[in-house]
Design a protein around this nucleic acid. Structure first.
Lengths: 234, 234
DNA sequence: ATTTTTAAAAATATCGATATTTTTATTGAC
DNA sequence: GTCAATAAAAATATCGATATTTTTAAAAAT
């Protein structure tokens, strides 16, 4: 077992209320339950989560450095707004980070890494099959999709690359979720995942990088289409 | 004037005590006044800065997402430790981010950008001359060095790239400062800066990317030498 | 009918106090 | 003398209250 231990990221066990608040807010912002641009009033959040003001404030401070929340001097804070331009920017940067992380991971990955990738892929495939049959569990798909992508880069022995990749992945996820509400699924993402999976296990770095690039670009395009067409109504 | 407006980053005008605390702590961590690994006790910080506990806690929360401070559940927090491995990792990622940002910036930069780069370069050169003559103002050098590097990538129209670049630059700066205490200056950094400056104004993207890569690698090597030789004593 | 002033309401940022948890020190057992 | 259990001290996390600032609403003036 050589698969590298990377720091737990924001997913450590919750020892304090502040951590809990951080997780809750984070999830709700990424999922869109707290809409982009929404003013985050402390009292409102207190009621929503049943937590005290102090832990919530701390959580908001952390989220501001994650660029999910915007602090504004003496006038509270808001969920970071979303835009087509930002979606493209996030896509571009994510492409770069994923590509580099994937390069390193494929070069370093050992047996345990392969096993994890295989497992994650199968879990993802099985839910994608269900979804194609009409059974709708997007939340679970989101989870497994994330796990698959994490598994691919898990052997990247660069904590910094890993961290930044994660941050930008989350940003991208927010766009994916925002646009999925409005869009019809047109491309076959399962196919892209399979291509990615096979390239990774073949240790074909250039192929894998090309595929992940196309994959991310595809998502980015879908997102910016959905956003620019569907932004007036709704 | 096309030079792109990028968000102020963590350098907005200070409207609250929490922001002030953030800035103070941040500067002290990057400069090394608060040593790597140091336990940050609230009472200690209260005394040090003459601020209340609540704003300090908020600042620490923000810094934890910047990865300058490590929160640890129910047992306070500490300045993120430093290591040779981390220095190399930071160097590697910084190289990648600076290169890409520089590519975009050189491609986009207009007259105003050129003017700013020229100005920043001259400011940096003049202090480097002074330092070579023995006049020691490292703090000012650090400031101008940072400004020069910012000027180079100022026309990078990718807020995300800009933001991540800045974060990693700060991390790298912490290592530079830590190691400068112990090291004799051996390479001629002014020369590297001049090469970078000229390549940028010539719009020679590949050259500029090569030079910045070597520049960062040089710093990284100096840092990891200083750290691995001088780590026992001191 | 705007715009400006003034007053009221709301929301934020901060403080001081307290309950909990962790760390340190002490005692007692083997 | 080392280890475990216990007690004291220290430090953290959280709450409730308050002072400040911003926003909203109302009144007055041009």
């Amino acid at each position: 077992m050589t698969t590298i231990m990377v720091d737990p990221g924001p997913e450590a066990p919750e020892r304090t209320i502040a951590e809990r608040a951080y997780r809750l807010l984070r999830d709700d912002i990424i999922s869109g339950d707290l809409a982009p641009g929404l003013k985050l009033k402390i009292e409102m959040l207190r009621q929503r989560y049943g937590l005290g003001a102090a832990p919530i404030r701390e959580a908001l401070a952390r989220l501001s450095s994650d660029h999910l929340v915007r602090l504004e001097g003496q006038r509270g804070c808001e969920v970071v707004p979303m835009s087509v331009a930002d979606a493209r920017d996030v896509g571009h940067v994510r492409k770069m980070l994923e590509a580099e992380a994937l390069r390193i991971s494929i070069a370093n990955g050992d047996d345990a890494w392969e096993a994890d990738v295989i497992a994650a892929f199968h879990r993802l495939e099985s839910i994608e099959r269900k979804i194609n049959q009409g059974i709708d569990d997007l939340a679970e798909w989101e989870r497994r999709n994330k796990q698959f992508h994490v598994a691919l880069v898990a052997a990247c022995d660069s904590p910094w690359l890993f961290r930044l990749r994660r941050q930008v992945f989350d940003q991208h996820e927010r766009y994916r979720r925002l646009s999925r509400v409005r869009t019809v699924r047109t491309r076959d993402i399962s196919l892209e995942h399979r291509a990615l999976f096979e390239a990774a296990l073949d240790r074909d770095i250039e192929k894998a990088v090309t595929v992940i690039g196309a994959h991310i670009q595809g998502t980015t395009d879908a997102v910016s289409n959905a956003l620019s067409t569907g932004s007036k109504h709704s």
